[in-house]
């Protein structure tokens, strides 16, 4: 608080502000122009549980290969889906790039509020779609809807139970070349 009071009286004058301007291009994003990489942190909901996650992807034209990891914060346990996904870009040029995704991976359920329960892991598949909207050549917004399908062995009758989760997420994406 003292620092905030003293700074205005120091006589410092900042350099002129220079707004960041995006270089005008005919096409902002062109996925056909070589390989690009994206880092996409995101948040969202899986059922009534909140999620945080990170996606790392390598883009080449119509196809992306993606590694995704998430934390789903539940009441009695946390779920950690880790998956490898293949993405088909429905457009390769322009600001808006919709896509479809399919993948497979592991789902780890780690209990937090119960005593005696162990971590349960299972293999699952996921599929869904979304869209990326680029505000600049390096930064954009990404929204996605996905469905996870996995099986776990029931403790009651030892039969496999089919579990289906729906996830909706919103995040940002940073593009690198």
């Amino acid at each position: 608080m003292i620092a905030c009071l003293l700074i205005p009286h120091s006589g410092i004058i900042a350099q002129d502000s220079v707004p960041v301007t995006t270089k005008q291009q005919a096409v902002l994003i062109d996925l056909n122009d070589g390989v690009t990489f994206e880092v996409s942190p995101h948040t969202g909901l899986m059922g009534s549980s909140g999620i945080f996650g990170l996606r790392l992807s390598m883009n080449y034209s119509s196809f992306n290969l993606e590694l995704a990891g998430e934390q789903v914060i539940g009441r009695t346990a946390n779920l950690y889906p880790i998956s490898v996904n293949v993405i088909l870009n429905l457009a390769t040029r322009g600001r808006l790039i919709p896509y479809g995704a399919v993948g497979t991976g592991l789902l780890f359920a780690v209990p937090t509020n119960t005593i005696g329960d162990e971590t349960v892991s299972s293999i699952g598949v996921n599929f869904g779609g979304g869209a990326r909207y680029y505000l600049t050549s390096k930064f954009g917004i990404r929204a996605e809807v996905k469905q996870y399908i996995t099986t776990v062995k029931s403790n009651r009758d030892l039969r496999d139970e089919l579990l289906i989760f729906q996830e909706i997420s919103l995040g940002v994406t940073f593009m690198f070349r």
């Binding site: 608080m1 205005p8 900042a14 502000s17």
Partner: peptide, 21 residues
């Protein structure tokens, strides 16, 4: 009141830098 004054006086003579990402 001190807190409100501190919040309002912080940027009287400086301009934010927009040139960094």
């Amino acid at each position: 009141g001190i807190l409100v004054v501190a919040l309002l006086l912080t940027a009287t003579s400086v301009r934010a830098q927009f040139s960094y990402e």
